[in-house]
Design a protein around this nucleic acid. Sequence first.
DNA 1: GATCAACGCGCG
DNA 2: AAAGCGCGCGTTGATC
Length: 593
Amino acid sequence: MLDHTYIHYITDPSIAAQQVATLAQEPILGVDIETYPLPAYRNRAKAGLDPYLAGIRLVQVASGAGRVAVFDLLHLPPTILTPLTTVPWVVFNGDFEYRHLTHAGLPVPRLQDAMFLDRLISHRLRDLAEVSCDILGQSLDKTLQTSDWGTAQLAPAQLEYAARDALACLRIAEQLTPRIRLLGRHRLYNLWCGALPVLAGLELRGQAFDWENHARLTGVWQQKRDYWAAELTSLLGAGVNPASGKQVSEWFCSHPTAGDLKRWPKTAKTGLLKTGAAEVALYGRPPVVKPLLEFKKYQKLMNTYTDNYVAHQHPVTGYLHPRFWLGGTRSGRISVSNPNTQQVPRYDDFRALFIPPAGKLLISADYSQIELVVAALLSKDQAMLDVYRHQGDLHRTTAAAIAGINPEEVNPDQRQAAKAVNFGNLYGQGPASLAETAYLDYQVSMTTDQARQALQRFDQAYPALKAWKRQQVAAAQQLHKVQTPLGLARDFEVQGVGFLQGEAQNMPIQGAAAEILMSALNRLPAALAGLDAQLYHTVHDELTLQVTPDDADAAAKALQESMVQGFLDIFPEAEEVITKPEVKRGSSWAAVH
DNA sequence: GATCAACGCGCG
DNA sequence: AAAGCGCGCGTTGATC
């Protein structure tokens, strides 16, 4: 491929304009950019990757014949590239290009992302070098990726490197686009491409955060952590680090009266006592249990949500700017990192730290019980669908089926237990595990036998769901894959049935729910057009927007409509089954729950 | 000092 | 043999 690459390095404005006019005639362009840290942030790690801390040095534009124009923005005004935006671009991990170009004030056309194309056949996100090697049979040396892109005189090798990547994007797309269409996965591909600018916009804006109260809360947590640590020192002895599973396990083993050692579960690899909160709560004995659980709780909060958050406070905006990875999980859900604001503790005092920018408010809605609704739709289980059709309460219905009574006779404890059964069942949970989660997560005691019976009654109550689950396991065993409505597949190696059962049952359900959310995200730009409303956050079944108060009513309507229509995009037959998500508004994330 | 496996735990 | 799904990321402890 490289042999036929013709690189045109452009620094002259009139030549640039001429080239841009020619390239704008192409049906599609491969595009890549190179960035460099601004002088003020030269010593800051990865500043060159952050649009606020970096400049765009090169924009490389590849066309089908294998020619690559390399525009040097050190010598050219960025706006000279504007005519190129009449042509679709193929990029790789286009989130990066979108954020940098948008921050630089350049319009960005609809992006085709070769990373997504690859994701749809490779089952995980891969970088350009790996994809190039695999799909094009061409190894890409990435050593120049981190070279000095701010230097006055770029080396020929740098220009070649830059050009090569842009062309690789185009060639990968040429290879994979027909394959994705043939596999019937282009709808999901298009949803990812459509969601890309929505999420990249969120990443660029960031999430406003209340740092003052965060510091206050950190102090409270630290005090509590230290208090319980001191308690543990007197109970366990100064030589035992309560944060060390190994040491805690050894302490329990040498103090047999402190726990039920006979029944205490062991870790898989090292054979120590499991020292998770669940095991400590179930198999430990007073007086060690409470201090240990309290210590673990505040230790976790301190470790994950204090200094680490401060480290992610952006030097320019002061906000959090997490990265949202489309297709980041095996089921097609979005994953989030740096920091992962999808795993924020549900305590109100912490969620209250997530606030809109000054003068705005948050509005938020989530899909109610989306995975159960999706399971009903995928399996076409009439009993389940009937419950939702009549705006019934599935937990109550299941509770009635388990106890063999009428739904009106169900008491709160029974309903709570049924919740555990409903959710556990979706993932192929066994009786012992169900009994444990029922106790730990739902505060309901049941014996393993009762759990077994509950699971059986569930299967009897929803026979089509049971059949569907069995069908998924069979597909995993015989075809070695299961898939979502839009064709995202999960492959299974040949192995024992037990290993894949839960995964095979859950993946299509979780994946379908993710596709619904993806559709809603795709609908947002049009629905919010003309309104001062932007995406603030999304967590699997929830969308949160920041809006100006004047537009709150209209935005709430648009959000609800996007979510309803997004659901129907994946399950057109669901009209009478789904309930409209309720949109809440408030001055923080805690207030919209 | 850097890296890795193992474990644990926050969320949906 | 038994095992509820999907993540990101923290510490511990072993190893290089």
